[in-house]
C-alpha cells in the first residue's frame, strides 16, 4: 500500500525547495524529475503548493476526480482562484485575481503546462530582479497570448500574477516582477 512520491512530505519539501529557487532565479530551469517518481512536474508543483486551505481553478479540465480529492482544494472560477492550472497551448480566456493593494500576495499563481522547456521553440527574453542583464528561456507549447495577457495582468505592480511553467520534467518561474519579451526570430 504505497502512495505516489509527490504526495509524501519528503518529496514535497524537496520540490518546494526547487520552486523557491526557481522563483528567486526567474526563467532558470529546475529539473525535478529525479524526485517526483514519473509524475508530470506540473502535478508535483500543484501537490506541493495546494491543500484544503486554498482554492484551485482548472479551466482546461486537466485534473481527474482522483486528483481533486488528493489536492483537497475547493474548486473556484479562474477569476477567484488562488491557483490556476492551465494548458499553455490553449488561449487564456479569463481574468485571474491579481490581489489587492492591502494584500498583493493574494494574486493568483498560474501553473502553465508547456510541451518542452529549454530545448526548442520560441525564445522569451527575461529581465528584472533575480536576473543579471537578461536571460533567454526557450520553450515550446506556449501560446503567445499568455505572454501578452501576462503583461496586462501585471501592469499595475505590485498587483499581478505569478507564472510557474512546467513540462514533464522541469519547472521555471516567471514572477510578476520579471519583464518578458518574445524574442524576434
Amino acid at each position: 500500500m504505497t502512495i505516489d512520491a509527490i504526495w509524501t512530505p519528503e518529496t514535497q519539501q524537496r520540490v518546494f525547495h526547487r520552486l523557491l529557487n526557481a522563483m528567486a532565479r526567474p526563467a532558470t530551469l529546475w529539473d525535478i524529475s529525479d524526485i517526483i517518481g514519473g509524475e508530470p512536474s506540473w502535478k508535483a508543483a500543484l501537490a506541493t503548493l495546494i491543500d484544503g486551505s486554498v482554492n484551485l481553478s482548472d479551466p482546461n479540465n486537466m485534473l481527474d476526480d482522483r486528483s481533486w480529492k488528493f489536492f483537497q482544494a475547493a474548486a473556484a472560477s479562474p477569476d477567484k482562484a488562488g491557483y490556476i492550472v492551465a494548458d499553455g497551448t490553449s488561449q487564456p480566456k479569463f481574468e485571474p485575481f491579481s490581489g489587492s493593494l492591502e494584500s498583493p500576495e493574494n494574486g493568483a499563481t498560474i501553473i502553465l503546462c508547456v510541451s518542452r522547456l529549454g530545448e526548442s521553440g520560441p525564445c522569451l527574453t527575461c529581465s528584472g530582479p533575480g536576473i543579471e542583464d537578461t536571460y533567454d528561456l526557450v520553450l515550446s507549447g506556449l501560446s503567445a497570448q499568455w505572454i501578452e495577457k501576462r503583461g496586462q495582468w501585471n501592469k499595475n505592480f505590485p498587483l499581478g500574477v505569478d507564472f510557474i511553467l512546467a513540462d514533464d520534467r522541469r519547472i521555471a518561474a516567471l514572477p510578476r516582477t520579471t519583464r518578458v519579451k518574445i524574442k524576434e526570430a
Binding site: 500500500m1 502512495i3 504526495w7 482522483r66 480529492k69 488528493f70 483537497q72
Partner: peptide, 13 residues
C-alpha cells in the same frame, strides 16, 4: 489481505 489484493488510496491518507 494486501498480499492478495491491490490497495489504492482514493484520498490523501
Amino acid at each position: 489481505a494486501k498480499s492478495i489484493y491491490t490497495v489504492r488510496h482514493l484520498t490523501l491518507p
